[in-house]
């Protein structure tokens, strides 16, 4: 299996990828053949028959039934073959094996949540065992998104009113990008994730560690990890620049102006509420687009994020 990718295709990370690539290259070679045939002939005629001074006598043949039948029937036969090849592979791409491991995917602006059968969940990081078929059952909490892993050659829209699914089997350990490919607003291009393909043993270990997160490191560093892994980073910066949401720099202890004109001090309770019920208090100048993290973060996770935001607000006094 090709794991580095070619000049034009990304690495083939799933069992189906090499089959898709085979079909892709078949169409590519057919296309190059016809391109050379048509544009090559046209170029040759342009050079050979170009007008030099006076108009040269021209052929006045205006039809040739045999030739016209040939160039209708041959392409027709080719496209019908392509149709069947594409359709049969498409059906295999769509029908998941019965023993597939099922993971529930929830898309919302602008993050991916993965719920595992064991009851744990992860944000923007899908960890799966290598060599096993995985079926993703997907739905959206807001607008239409699309789950796309280029290395797997799979893509499926994620809809707000029904379930859709994709499946894949990644034979080797490694990492692959997830990208949202249905336009969903400001954070569309940063609605990214990672599929981590790991060995069976690592998968079991990960399930255990994910159940009790962040043990053994201090809250501040753990919060910094969560800031990236739970994708706060998509909308919030820590350097004071504006993004979709307010920056966390010097936020803690500051008075925040809310929509409607009221003010609130950014203390622990305000931060906690803003994580769990973001629409309750919306900062003036921003839109209420943040999803709730209720159920996605454990109490220790919330403590850690608040500790991290606190650490970014320390120098506030000196700055002013």
């Amino acid at each position: 299996m090709d794991t580095t990718g070619t000049l034009i295709m990304p690495p083939a990370g799933s069992t189906i990828a090499s089959e898709v690539d085979w079909l892709f290259y078949l169409i590519l070679y057919i296309s190059i053949f016809f391109f050379v045939l048509v544009v090559g002939a046209a170029t040759y005629f342009f050079i050979k028959y170009r007008r030099r001074g006076e108009i040269a006598p021209t052929s006045q043949v205006d039809h040739n039934i045999k030739l016209e039948i040939v160039w209708t029937v041959i392409p027709l036969a080719i496209v019908i073959i392509l149709f069947f090849l594409g359709f049969s592979l498409y059906m295999r791409m769509n029908i998941a094996p019965k023993d597939a491991l099922e993971v529930k995917v929830t898309a919302q602006r602008w993050l991916w949540t993965f719920d595992y059968p064991t009851g744990i969940n992860s944000v923007n990081e899908l960890v799966v065992p290598a060599g096993k078929p995985i079926k993703l059952l997907m739905s959206s909490n807001d607008v239409i998104h699309s789950f796309f892993v280029p290395d797997f050659r799979v893509k499926m829209d994620v809809l707000p009113n029904r379930y859709t699914s994709v499946w894949f089997n990644a034979p080797y350990p490694g990492q692959h990008n997830i990208q949202c490919s249905e336009y969903c607003g400001k954070g569309h291009s940063e609605m990214l994730g990672i599929v981590k393909v790991v060995s069976d043993r690592e998968y079991t270990e990960w399930l255990e560690s994910a159940a009790g997160p962040g043990e053994g490191i201090d809250l501040e560093s753990y919060g910094e990890q969560l800031f990236t892994s739970k994708r706060c980073v998509t909308c919030h910066t820590v350097d004071g620049s504006l993004n979709v949401g307010p920056s966390f720099l010097h936020l803690f202890g500051e008075n925040v102006y809310l929509q409607g004109g009221s003010q609130v001090r950014a203390d622990e309770n305000y931060l906690r509420e803003s994580i769990l019920a973001p629409e309750a208090k919306v900062v003036d100048g921003f839109e209420p687009v943040m999803p709730t993290y209720q159920g996605l973060l454990k109490p220790r996770d919330i403590d850690a994020l608040i500790a991290y935001i606190k650490s970014l607000g320390q120098e506030q006094g000196e700055q002013q």
Binding site: V20, L23, S31, F83, L89, Y90, P150, V154, S181
Partner: peptide, 22 residues
Amino acid sequence: TIGGLTGLFLGTLATDVHLTDT
């Protein structure tokens, strides 16, 4: 001709899955 031929990749179901919306 290029535009038309690249349509073949998108009309073919299996390759369209990878290429659509890109």
